[in-house]
């Protein structure tokens, strides 16, 4: 079984969020980049587990510059067999999805496991777009994924619960927590990652459909209204009369 896992590079959650060029660009200053958590912890690890169980191959694909090498090597250290880097700026989700779909079309994968969202744009886009570009079925918010005889049995999140579905491969799924337990690369993995193949390919054209005009930071920290602990009735009054939420 051939599995493709797209991995994104995102600012670490503790990064300071600031913008430059008249609030049109994210400020890179002092930002540490990491592999997108849902891609690393759930999508990639589950892909590696499925390979360990059923055999096959796990390929990671990343759209980004040469400075992404570190996160790609980390993915290889966690257990991917090969990596592809599309040498281009990941300008927007559709562009990224187009690159992944172009690669997948020539390679032919049984399964593509993406993370449900990136922690920077929180957009939940790439998995669905890749599926549509490849005309494949897709399931998102996936918490359990097993493959048997070319059929995926999946537990996915729905409002107030979960749903178990069966879908034939080939398929695109978007992973979320509970799908796997994060793995920390061990020494053997890190050593092996150094010599695993990383292919760099040029980008294919894709139209720019969505642009970001500018960013806005929240006005300023909210001013909290403190209520004395011996006057709890006042809190209830404020919630009822001022905030009108109860």
């Amino acid at each position: 079984m051939k599995i493709l896992v797209p991995i994104a590079k995102v600012p670490d959650t503790t990064s300071k969020i600031a913008f430059v060029d008249n609030n049109t660009k994210f400020s890179q200053e002092g930002v540490t980049y990491i592999m997108n958590p849902t891609d690393e912890w759930y999508a990639l690890v589950r892909a590696v587990e499925l390979k360990e169980k059923n055999g096959g191959e796990v390929v990671v694909i990343h759209v980004g510059g040469a400075d992404s090498e570190q996160i790609i090597r980390k993915a290889l250290a966690i257990g991917a067999d090969k990596a592809v880097r599309v040498d281009a700026d990941p300008t927007d989700a559709f562009f990224v999805a187009s690159q992944i779909a172009a690669h997948a079309k020539t390679e032919g994968y049984d399964l593509i496991i993406a993370g449900k969202e990136t922690i920077d744009y929180n957009s939940y886009e790439v998995g669905g777009m890749v599926a549509e570009l490849l005309d494949l079925q897709s399931v998102a918010l996936v918490q359990k994924l097993d493959i048997e005889g070319g059929v995926a049995t999946i537990v996915r999140e729905i409002e107030g619960g979960t749903e178990t579905v069966e879908v034939k491969l080939p398929l695109v799924v978007c992973a979320q927590k509970e799908l796997a337990e994060a793995r920390i690369p061990n020494m053997k993995g890190i050593m092996a990652a150094r010599t695993k193949p990383l292919t760099v390919v040029p980008a294919t054209d894709a139209p720019k459909l969505t642009t970001i005009a500018n960013y806005v930071l929240p006005e300023k920290a909210k001013e909290v209204k403190l209520i004395d602990k011996d006057n709890v009735a006042e809190l209830v009054r404020l919630l009822h009369e001022e905030a009108k939420v109860i």
Binding site: A93, S123, M129, C174
Partner: peptide, 18 residues
Amino acid sequence: KLLAPRVAVRLNAGYVPG
């Protein structure tokens, strides 16, 4: 979250998630 980006691709549309 899964349906909207698929529809956007089908319609060649710009898309706002959320």
